[in-house]
Design a binder for these strands. Structure first.
Lengths: 200, 200
DNA sequence: GACTCAATACCTACTGGTTGGTATGTGTTA
DNA sequence: TAACACATACCAACCAGTAGGTATTGAGTC
């Protein structure tokens, strides 16, 4: 009566994403993960050699899941690179919906907790964030080229800035337990990009 | 051989600030706090009725400590409100020094972890962040007034945006285990404010 | 197509260490 | 002498991880 191959592993990873986004890494127990995945500890330790490995693989899983989401978003098909950048920002604002754990970032949450105590997880989170930023960076670089912009900042630094704003917006959302401030932050981010590219 | 009144309590609170900034809230045990404060659990439970109360009071303690730091910063004595706003941003950049736990935000870290699980701590973190933002907001409001700015955003939302950028910059700093990206984020924040007020 | 056999996938039951919290003190101060 | 400020010793619950089992799958053999 077992499920198709490796589906269980995915269930553990999905459970980890949900639970860590709700309670954080340290407060999420392996038993929690097993219960949510509707599987047992024996199965868990068959797939992972411990909590750390779960976290590292969950970071990669997060990249895959969100990567798919952004790849399918309509803005990626816009012809103008600046439109894609602004479309990305708008999309990030649009997906701020539902309860706080539903729209906040798994790797940002985890990095916050383990940066000093677990280098392997920290590295996995950093990689996930930077891979995502690199895709934004590509469009920013094209937009800067197209607008012949002579700036005292790089496309990379602006791309990372967009991520910082989003991560910070999530923290304010968590603190207030709401979405409004976060959305207003993204409005400011959009305004900044518009001003940089003189679209305003 | 006991210390002057209530000094022990402060030692617990200081220990909590340091440890949570290093390891996060959940991973910080009461025993850790006692050890760092060089006091015993008996003393701890004399001053606090549990970990939650420690966290709530530590948030207030954090506001007091950082409040003192900013009150003494040189930028607050500048005559022009916009200079004070930009001076604040520069000051935030300047104090990004040393190891990551030394410059990151206690309440931001804690809010991230407990927002769904502990309303009392979440509220304390929100209050701490918003009190700090309110001081920035005051100068922003004056600057907007003085520059006769007709903006489609409020001073409050811009003030909260500055906090979001800072909190997000801290997350990137934690993920990369360094300071550079965070500082570049603050450069972007400064550029944004300069552009809003046409100082560039 | 039936018959091994080994690897895979999953389970139950347990353990040793940790953790938040308690019970019950003693010394010190006003 | 009562309140305060600490300390020691303990406990029950919890948690990461282990031991050792059973069921399922799939590839090779005849």
């Amino acid at each position: 009566m077992s499920l198709p191959r490796h589906q269980s592993k995915t269930k553990f990873l999905d459970a980890a994403l949900a639970l860590v986004r709700m309670k954080g890494y340290a407060a999420t127990t392996i038993d929690d993960v097993c219960q949510r995945a509707e599987l047992t500890k024996g199965s868990f330790f068959h797939h992972f050699n411990g909590k750390e490995e779960l976290a590292v693989q969950a970071a990669a899983h997060w990249s895959a899941v969100t990567g798919g989401l952004f790849a399918l978003a309509p803005y990626v098909r816009l012809a103008d690179p600046l439109d894609r950048v602004l479309g990305y920002v708008d999309f990030r604002k649009a997906i701020i919906q539902g309860e706080v754990p539903e729209f906040t970032c798994f790797v940002g949450t985890m990095a916050q907790e383990i940066h000093q105590t677990n280098p392997a997880i920290r590295q996995a989170c950093d990689t996930s964030i930077r891979e995502h930023a690199a895709r934004v960076e590509a469009d920013i670089a094209l937009a800067m080229q197209q607008h012949d912009m002579k700036a005292d900042f790089t496309a990379k630094s602006l791309a990372l800035y967009t991520q910082a704003v989003l991560q910070g917006a999530f923290i304010l959302a968590k603190a207030e337990n709401g979405r409004e401030t976060a959305k207003e932050c993204i409005d400011h981010l959009r305004r900044y990009i518009e001003m940089l590219f003189r679209r305003r």
